[in-house]
Design a protein around this nucleic acid. Structure first.
Lengths: 230, 230
DNA sequence: GCTCTTGAACTTCCATACAAGTGCATACTA
DNA sequence: TAGTATGCACTTGTATGGAAGTTCAAGAGC
């Protein structure tokens, strides 16, 4: 007797061409591999990815909605330049949502997610010691996601993620000195401690502090890299 | 001597076909003219709007990103059903951001926007007396926008707008009894008063109260209209 | 009667061709 | 020389045909 699995209900195994192009372009725009102000064209990108213009176009539109590309009809498409204003707007929105998340986490945050958050902090310590900045940043993201998931706010996280990109893009300019990651680990620990204690006000304050410290090293970058800013 | 205006720098006079389709479909989905669970198809919509399938496809993708359509590859596209969970998630995110907006408004809110907000409240009173619910809802939106604009947080408003759709969609089911609009006007007035006094805590409380009252009449609708909910 | 196969009728996804608009270099005119 | 057309090369926007995949029902085989 064979069991027939409902294959049709599974998500497609391979992501669409449009999704792949969007994902890769987005990563490049955020880590500044694709430079702010750079001119892109549908046909050029299509050739690079070996697909037709159509999926590229869909990716462009999606990235435009995220505020990462500026599609000018019949004129061209450019990567939007960095902007202090946009970065601060992103921080404002992100802080508003993440503060609400930790506030809720103080009410509902079961042991499973507490353990996960704790292990992510431990992993960050290791990454900091090893000087693995890329890994550190990935773990940082996972920590924030764990908070959102534990507070049952994943929809809110998707809203945060869009804003986060505008902060990450500016932060990608900062040089990563050896000890720069340690304070961030301590801040994560402070947030988690407050949540475990159920102390909402302390958790909120810790999150606000953390989000402000993330942007610590960006002051003056708009002057140093003036050509990348609008 | 003739002055040549830089026409090329103006935005295109006529919106693209894709934008038009998206705008009209979005409006229909939010006011439930297009019913939750209904099956759409690119070719059918293309024929209805007298355009090709391509711009329709782009509109579908955009609406999928907003959580309004569910595009299933090679299977079909359906209008996502209403969801109490999604509505509450939207309220959570919206409240987080709008609370932050009024908090900031208590610090920076110049006379121009104060007057505008006040006149919008007056207009809402008139609409309420006239029983013009559609106009009332438009003015409600404009009031919240005025707060965001006055607090210099327009980017935050665009984030709110996406979430607002999921609340509006459920609210579109409620019957509008004659006196149902008056409390909302009073709540707007309370928010504005607190902002004028620079009393952040009172403004925040007023906004939270307002947002909870908006969803006052929706309890039990998921049972009355079970077929529209997932 | 029940199970399995198969094919037709749909769907979304992608490739290609063409339409429409922009900007710039070049040549022409006063 | 300065100013003005004009055509070309480029862009994004739209239309259309076909590829790939899903669903469903009719019919063959047992």
């Amino acid at each position: 007797m064979t069991i027939v699995l409902p294959i049709q209900s599974l998500p497609r195994l391979q992501e669409s061409a449009a999704a792949r192009v969007e994902r890769e372009l987005r990563a490049g725009i955020i880590d500044l591999t694709i430079r702010p102000g750079e001119r892109l064209s549908e046909s050029e990108i299509a050739e690079r990815f070996q697909v037709s213009r159509q999926p590229v176009r869909e990716a462009f539109i999606a990235l435009m909605r995220q505020g990462l590309l500026d599609v000018q009809p019949q004129r061209g498409t450019v990567v939007v330049k960095l902007s202090v204003r946009r970065m601060l707007d992103a921080r404002f929105i992100r802080e508003a949502i993440e503060v609400a998340i930790v506030r809720r986490a103080c009410e509902r945050f079961d042991a499973h997610y507490r353990d996960r958050a704790a292990s992510l902090i431990a992993a960050q310590e290791a990454a900091a010691r090893a000087g693995d900045h890329a890994g550190f940043q990935r773990l940082d993201s996972l920590f924030h996601i764990a908070l959102a998931e534990g507070a049952d706010c994943m929809e809110a996280w998707t809203a945060v993620e869009m804003q986060k990109a505008h902060m990450d893009r500016v932060c990608a300019l900062t040089l990563h000195s050896p000890g720069s990651m340690d304070p961030l680990v301590a801040q994560h620990q402070a947030i988690l401690n407050a949540i475990e204690d159920g102390d909402a006000e302390r958790a909120v304050a810790a999150m606000r502090h953390h989000l402000s410290e993330i942007l610590r090293g960006v002051a003056g970058l708009d002057l140093t890299f003036a050509e990348l800013f609008e």
